[in-house]
Design a protein around this nucleic acid. Structure first.
Lengths: 215, 215
DNA sequence: GTCTATATAATGATAGAC
DNA sequence: GTCTATCATTATATAGAC
């Protein structure tokens, strides 16, 4: 998946390539996440990089290829947080809080990435079928087993693990995907750190009862 | 807002207008929700209606005007459920369950509408600034007061009402907006009634502890 | 009001000089 | 590898017959 970022297979990337490629991918993540695949003009990405658009199409053969490369780079880091925080050894509620904070931090620091993923899902997810059906499904099954183990030990109340994970995602990603709605409701120019903190606290209030002493 | 659906102000709409307009708006909701504003071709909407695309642009002066009209019709029904279920008289937990079921039913029966709204938010919500800052904000403030009243009476645990509503929305709309993701995870061709039911039950499991006897 | 045909604008992609 | 200029395609919007 990572090699989508490298249209050619040179063993040692040249200096300009090492410098320009990440710059293009960063600009592409912002633009695709903000305008969508169809709404993005290659020229805007080029403008953000300060280079002519022909250069973009020199590195990536087409707009769609750049889109796929941008998605691929994003998906590589998408699931990283879960394995760190949701592990069998860790204390359940401590892991949940860490996971929610990590997901929320992603929505705060890289909102366009979250929006890019959301747009891809909304438009049918054709580009990420493989990721969804293989990587993500395996990821969810692995963590569902951890939840079920906690439940079997009486450390967690009985709840459907898959639907629970979906709720965790939608609730945390909403702070990126529905950002303009939240800004309007909270009457903010842009969301404050305290807003994200309040969102975390609200989430934790809902989740804590799952982990209290079950008696 | 409703009159955006009617480009002319004839007091008595002609018969073909009454027949064709809703058909166009239905097709537009599906197409805009599936492909986004930029990704939608007027010709596809026309094809779904079985009419030439020039007719679409006769009724609506531009693709963007049709987009706004489609959004306007959607927003008119967007908030209808809340006032029915979240009222001061009703039993809190009964109201919450009714509200969640209503929101989930919308995601099941009209997913393209939910996706259209989501796409508009993702792309910055320029078209619905007025709705967000006036109508929706007033809506949320009204229901936040109900939550706060419940909390003051000891009928509900203390939780931030605005962030709580945001969680309710993201969690229920996710079953439309992230539908392809859920289908991949649950290994379904398309989501079953039992999947939505399991989602509702998961949500209720999280919410019930907010309303147990507080002692 | 409904349709066919067309003008016009936007933009992805390429050719070819440097 | 980088750039300018251009081509080719696509799709919105309009003109005008019926």
């Amino acid at each position: 998946m990572t090699d989508l970022c490298e249209p050619t297979r040179s063993r040692k990337p040249s200096a300009p390539r090492r410098a320009t490629l990440p710059q293009i991918l960063n600009a592409a993540e912002w633009t695709f996440g903000t305008r969508g695949l169809k709404g993005t003009r290659v020229e805007e990405i080029a403008g953000l990089c300060g280079i002519p658009k022909a250069n973009i199409l020199y590195y990536f053969h087409s707009k769609e290829a750049l889109y796929q490369a941008t998605l691929a780079r994003l998906l590589d880091i998408w699931l990283a947080d879960a394995d760190e925080w949701l592990s069998p050894e860790r204390d359940p509620m401590e892991g949940m809080e860490g996971y929610i904070r990590a997901k929320m931090a992603f929505s705060r620091t890289r909102p366009e990435g979250s929006r890019l993923f959301a747009q891809e899902l909304l438009s049918g997810g054709q580009m990420i079928q493989g990721f969804l059906k293989e990587t993500l499904r395996a990821h969810v099954e692995r963590h569902a087993e951890i939840f079920l183990a906690w439940q079997a030990k009486g450390l967690m109340r009985v709840i459907d693990p898959t639907h629970f994970m979906c709720l965790l995602w939608s609730g945390t990603q909403a702070y990126a995907d529905m950002q303009v709605q939240f800004e309007a409701l909270l009457d903010r120019e842009s969301l404050l750190d305290t807003d994200y903190e309040a969102g975390i606290e609200t989430f934790l209030t809902l989740i804590r009862p799952l982990f209290v002493q079950l008696g």
